[in-house]
Write a protein that binds this DNA or RNA. Sequence first.
DNA 1: TTCAATCCTTAAACTAGTTTAAGGGTATTT
DNA 2: AAATACCCTTAAACTAGTTTAAGGATTGAA
Lengths: 204, 204
Amino acid sequence: MLEQIQPTEDPLQMLIDNFKQFFPLSTNEQDEVKRLFTQRIVKRKVFLLQEGEVCRHYYFVVSGCFKMFAIDTNFREHNLQFAAEGDWIADFQSFYNEEPSRLYIEAVEPAIVLQIQHKDLLYLYTNYHKFDRNFRIIIERKLMEYQNRILLNISTNADERYVVFQKQYPQLINRLPSTQIASYLGITSEFLSKIRKKASGKKQ
Amino acid sequence: MLEQIQPTEDPLQMLIDNFKQFFPLSTNEQDEVKRLFTQRIVKRKVFLLQEGEVCRHYYFVVSGCFKMFAIDTNFREHNLQFAAEGDWIADFQSFYNEEPSRLYIEAVEPAIVLQIQHKDLLYLYTNYHKFDRNFRIIIERKLMEYQNRILLNISTNADERYVVFQKQYPQLINRLPSTQIASYLGITSEFLSKIRKKASGKKQ
DNA sequence: TTCAATCCTTAAACTAGTTTAAGGGTATTT
DNA sequence: AAATACCCTTAAACTAGTTTAAGGATTGAA
């Protein structure tokens, strides 16, 4: 497969447009965004963050796809989150507390991100009410997503979690290997195979 | 047991003090808090929210303890969260989108809360940068908590989740019946009994 | 073009967690 | 003081999900 990492639109404009769904940015605020966010091209399998490092940036994904995961004592990966076009990603705990992270962020496809440093984000928060407000809303939405996922994890079996994943992230189903999806769902890829077989049998 | 619902301190002062760990409120902002938050005394087993209702308030818990849960198609409860002194609780999805909730919030102990209406919170957000900022931080912290819980759910077994719960919420272990804790951990209370037996056996 | 790595599936044996049922214990309500 | 609801544990039978192993299919790298 050829690398399709060129977005059709200007990345910074994409970011500015993304803020429009909340409280649109003034010209001045847009200029600050242009000044403080840096574009970065990321090849497949490159890490934006590795365990033990401090998460220095907050990332807006322009194109491509990332996974954020932890590795347990048996060297198994557990996917906490995927992030594709229009998503934000960072390990908050590490980013805000400036402490070493337990997580990895890795490109599963060639990608483009816009990144902002901790101190620059704090500058935006301090000097512009709107960034505090917009990021409050971005984080609230992520919180709802996480809350729904927790509810799903404690109340349903793997079959149902897979069905919900298919409905919720149809664009990711075909982009990600099923090992990665299994890891996100909290099951083994062998068991996901069983689930898929059972499900395809039912339909036909 | 007698009802111990009288906090030692003035509830509104507790709330104002709570904000101090973030960005302390000015006198003017404190006055707005006093004007817009209402105290409410809640008896055990009383609901602040029931499925189908819109979540009209955001609650700060002054004393007592709540559980937020969903009921599945088999009429089983699944605890999404507990909230004790100093915690904030609401169903965000319902509160911000003003749509019917799928959740219940119920007092598991007699409690006192301070509640604010949606429109009044929006008023604070709009007119005072600091409330947007402080609530951004409150929500970020909740997000980290949820993220850790998801990681735990997808990467460990019930034994380990119980150990982590004990460490993380030592004050709740003795206040909540173990049926409620099992529901939070995503297991049956019968299985939690097994875990406890195994764990107590190991220690002696 | 070949080699190595990762991916996907299957199956058999195993283990973690559920279900159903039952009994005794403790609060809470009347 | 009695009645009721809820709580906690145990155990036996069951089911969901894991482990180990193996083989073929794709993909990426050299």
